[in-house]
Each structure stands twice: as C-alpha cells, then as structure tokens.
C-alpha cells in the first residue's frame, strides 16, 4: 500500500504545472524513501526528474515498491478540484488500477474523494551520471523566467555564456538579436541581480528556448533556480521544492557538427 499526505494541495498542483507540458504520461515510482519520477518529452531532447522525500511529507507510507502510471493531464484536472490549502492524500493499493485522491478543507468540514484510473506505461529510463559541472549559476527563478520569455520573442535558441564576469543569454532571429547579461555580485545589495556563480571553466552553449520555456513553469515552486553547465553535455536546471525534494530538468545542447 502506498499513501502520501501533503499539508497543502498547492505543492502537487505546482509540480503538475511544471511537468504536464513536457510529459503526457509518466510512471510515479514510489518506494520507502519517497516518490520519484523520470520522464522525457516526446522528442527525447529534454528530461524531467522529480524527487519527493517521504519523511518530509505530512505522512508517508509505502511498504512495497510500486510504479503508478499516470496521465499528467488527468491528474492536473483532478488536482484543480482541490483548494490550494486542502490537505491532500494520494493513495494506491498494491496492484491497484486506480489512484485515490482525498482533499480535506482547512476547516475539515468538507472532504472530496476522487479516483483516477492508472495506466501501463512503458517508459525508457536513462542513467544520469553524477557530473561535475564547469559552471553552476544560482539566480532568481523569476528573473530566469523573464529572460527566457524575453529572448523567445527574438529567436528560437539561446546562447548561454558563463565566465568570471557573469552569465550572458543571447538570442538571434530574422528580425534582430538580443542579449541579457547578469554580473556575478558577491556583495548582496538590495535590488542587485543577486546571482552566484561557481565556475571552474568558462562555458558557451546553445539551447532551444522552447524547452527552457517549459522548465520555467516550475518557478512557483522556488524563489531560486540553479543552472549547471559543462561543454557538450546537457544543461541541468534545478528548482528545490522546500525541504521535500527537487525538480530537475535536463536539456541536450545544440552542437555544431
């Protein structure tokens, strides 16, 4: 039996918003440690990896490992039936073909119960190696969303350059070009861009903005985002989910042959 209780529905709602545009169906792999999900987009260019630790949830139990095949759009719709502050329980029996959702209102005077059919999903699982990155940039998640949105109006791709001066995002299109530079600023002043850069080697890589736009849907989960880059390897974009876990995205770079 698997059962996880979230003090508020909002975390699950935000996790679904952060994944549903990238992935239609995904296996939620539940174990004694917690909930994990790994899924690629249909073109296999990007990957989302979600981890929620059971011991950081309001309550959690999972005796036997279980893989729950979930249609992300259906789950999004069911979660819309919950208020943000509703205590939310998700539950599935071993060998169950449904997941049960229970939403309890703040005053405990209203309880809603929904059942969602589970699916058999045959998904390809990738082994993601532990990677030392040449550059890791921590910045405001809102700022990152803004830059991705702004440069998407110019072109389809973004060139990300990280060096000791800071990070620069650049896009070129048929009608023009744009760049946004953020200086690394160790003195934390009010109103500064407030980014930190951990750099061993300068890097310059190209990525499709279309996927970065999907990743920025995770911004409500965290005030900060971290971008990890090395030459010729996938970008990792990570949003922490409080103390509960993280959502990480990987995106294959565009490389000149």
């Amino acid at each position: 039996m698997f059962e996880a209780t979230f003090n508020q529905a909002s975390i699950l709602k935000q996790v679904l918003e952060a994944t549903k545009d990238l992935v239609n169906d995904a296996n939620w792999d539940c174990s004694a440690e917690g909930i994990a999900l790994q899924a690629m987009d249909s073109s296999h260019v990007s990957l989302v990896s979600l981890s929620l630790r059971g011991d950081e949830l309001a309550s959690y139990r999972c005796e036997n490992q279980i893989s729950l095949g979930i249609n992300m759009n259906t789950m999004t719709k069911i979660l819309k039936c919950a208020e943000n502050n509703d205590r939310t329980i998700i539950r599935a029996d071993d060998d169950a073909d449904v997941m049960v959702f229970v939403f309890e209102s703040e005053g405990r005077d209203k309880t809603s119960k929904y059942e969602m059919k589970l699916m058999d999903i045959d998904s390809e699982h990738l082994g993601i190696p532990e990677q030392e990155y040449s550059a890791t940039v921590q910045m405001s998640s809102k700022e990152f969303s803004r830059i991705v949105r702004d440069l998407s109006t110019i072109g389809e791709n973004v060139e990300i350059t990280v060096d000791k001066e800071g990070i620069t995002f650049g896009a070129k299109g048929e009608s023009g070009s744009g760049t946004v530079s953020l200086k690394s600023n160790p003195s934390v002043d009010e109103g500064s861009s407030n980014i930190t850069i951990d750099l061993t080697d300068s890097v310059k890589l190209n990525f499709a903005l279309r996927y970065l736009t999907f990743f920025t849907k995770a911004a409500p989960l965290s005030d900060n985002v971290s971008l990890s880059l090395s030459a010729d390897v996938p970008l990792m974009v990570e949003y922490a989910i409080g103390d509960v876990g993280f959502i990480r995205y990987y995106l294959a770079p565009k490389i000149d042959d």
Binding site: M40, S43, H44, V45, S46, L47, E124, H125, L126, G127, I128, P129, N157, E159, K172, N206, A208, V233, P234, Y250, A252, P253, K254, I255, D256, D257
Partner: peptide, 14 residues
C-alpha cells in the same frame, strides 16, 4: 544554430 541531439547521445540506458 547547431544540431539538436537527443539525450540518449549523452546518457546511457538505466
């Protein structure tokens, strides 16, 4: 600019 590779070009099957 550049060719879009799939992730499997970088990560192996688990």
């Amino acid at each position: 600019s550049g060719k879009q590779h799939q992730l499997s070009a970088f990560f192996g099957a688990a």
